[in-house]
């Protein structure tokens, strides 16, 4: 049987909010090392890779490897029924066709359980090679979300240019043209406000705003976001999930034809 418990539902609620607009459904692959989900959006332009380690759960039991195909919209509806400070337990029997979510209130007075049918999803799985990226930018997640939102008003594409001076986000269209330049910080007291750029060689890449804005739905999960870039390969936008794992978004670039 499979059973995974988190002492409060907040993180799981944020994870669903981070993926449910991009993906309609996804397979939760469970093993004794934890839970993995990898799925592309319908257009095959972006991909979500979620990793939750078993040691990040307050209780985790997985007797046999289990793949649970979930309708993420339905799962998000069920999680809306949980209070942030409820304990959440996900349970499924081996080779079951349903999964149960149990929410227990802090004062133990209220226990709710929601059962959802599982789906048979034969989703394409992509092999993503370990890559040594030309540029890796770590910056405040709120800042990144703000820039993506602001620049989407000017164009459906954002050009990200990363050099040793800093990283520049540009967009231009009928309204006009916008450039947001962030310099690397050197002496910030709070780590999560730092802008750190590890550059092996400069890159200039173009991406669709609407996917970047879909990725920033994960902002509540982390203070920082990490952007990994190399010429003419997909962008990786990573949000760490404290003590549990991470969510990585991959986005294919737009390339001059």
């Amino acid at each position: 049987m499979f059973e995974a418990r988190l002492n409060n539902a907040t993180t799981l609620k944020k994870i669903l909010d981070a993926i449910k607009d991009l993906l309609n459904e996804g397979t939760f692959d469970c093993s004794d090392s934890g839970i993995q989900l990898q799925a592309m959006d319908n257009s095959h332009v972006s991909l979500v890779s979620l990793t939750l380690r078993s040691d990040g759960f307050d209780k985790f039991r997985c007797d046999r490897n289990l793949s649970m195909g979930m309708n993420l919209g339905s799962m998000a509806k069920i999680l809306k029924c949980a209070n942030n400070d409820d304990t959440v337990t996900i349970k499924a029997q081996d080779n079951a066709d349903t999964v149960t979510f149990m929410f227990e209130s802090q004062n133990q007075e209220k226990v709710s359980d929601y059962e959802m049918k599982l789906m048979n999803l034969d989703q394409e799985h992509l092999g993503i090679p370990e890559t040594d990226y030309s540029c890796v930018v770590r910056m405040p997640a709120m800042e990144f979300a703000r820039i993506c939102r602001d620049l989407a008003q000017f164009s459906e594409s954002v050009v990200i240019c990363c050099t040793k001076e800093g990283v520049k986000f540009s967009a231009s269209g009928d309204v006009g043209s916008a450039n947001v330049k962030l310099a690397q910080t050197f002496n910030v007291d709070k780590e999560e406000e730092a802008i750190v750029i590890e550059m092996q060689e400069p890159v200039v890449l173009t991406f669709a705003c609407r996917y970047l804005n879909a990725f920033t739905k994960a902002t509540p999960l982390s203070n920082q976001v990490q952007l990994s870039m190399s010429a003419d390969v997909p962008l990786v936008v990573e949000y760490r999930i404290a003590e549990l794992g991470h969510i990585r978004y991959y986005l294919a670039p737009k390339i001059e034809d």
Partner: peptide, 14 residues
């Protein structure tokens, strides 16, 4: 104008 690519042009099916 830049053309949107598909992820499967960069990563092969596992």
């Amino acid at each position: 104008t830049p053309v949107q690519n598909d992820l499967r042009e960069f990563y092969c099916l596992a």
